[in-house]
């Protein structure tokens, strides 16, 4: 049994230590917001936060997450009010939507570490996340707006 903390609740899973965190989340814990896209850390659809960092869960063995803090898209906010989620809605970013959980989880690390990201910062943070629908221009705009929302919230 492996114990891990996902979205602030403890879970015990019966899994081989090399089982990728992605499949533990999806197939054992039924948290399907985190997506399978490539299986080799190329596309970023599986991005979750492991102790606050945007790891690619498809190649992260669950053993690495043992007794650590995991946050998935389902746990990013209680009520879809994270500044990124709000900005994503304001800009109608998603098209098919499949990659967007990963995009948002990556962007969340950017915003935490850089509250005022430039275009270059966005490129530095977000180039590991592929979107086949080509929502990149809107992702860029939404991240900048989310930064503003984040500031307003912290000032409020």
């Amino acid at each position: 049994m492996i114990t891990l903390n996902v979205n602030n609740s403890a879970h015990q899973v019966s899994a081989e230590p090399d089982m990728p965190l992605l499949w533990v989340l999806r197939d054992l814990l039924n948290l399907t917001g985190t997506k399978f896209g490539c299986g080799v850390a190329q596309c970023g659809a599986c991005t979750v936060h492991l102790n606050g960092e945007a790891v690619r869960s498809c190649i992260t063995p669950v053993s690495r997450a043992e007794n650590q803090q995991v946050v998935t898209i389902e746990g990013l906010s209680k009520d879809t009010t994270h500044p990124l989620q709000q900005a994503w809605m304001a800009h109608d970013v998603p098209q098919c939507g499949y990659c967007q959980s990963g995009q948002i989880m990556s962007a969340a690390v950017l915003l935490r570490q850089n509250p005022d990201p430039t275009d270059e910062d966005i490129d530095l943070a977000m180039s590991g996340n592929i979107c086949r629908c080509g929502t990149y221009p809107r992702i860029r705009k939404a991240i900048k707006d989310a930064a503003k929302i984040q500031k307003q919230k912290s000032n409020a």
């Binding site: 999806r26 197939d27 399907t32 990124l84 998603p94 939507g97 499949y98 948002i104």
Partner: peptide, 27 residues
């Protein structure tokens, strides 16, 4: 108007084919 599928697609609740999960289902 704003898209009607955005909320579900930014909080992980949107269900795609790959997200179908049922008790007793195998892969």
């Amino acid at each position: 108007v704003k898209r009607l599928d955005t909320t579900a697609k930014v909080n992980g609740s949107a269900k795609f084919g790959l997200d179908v999960q049922y008790p007793g289902m195998l892969t």
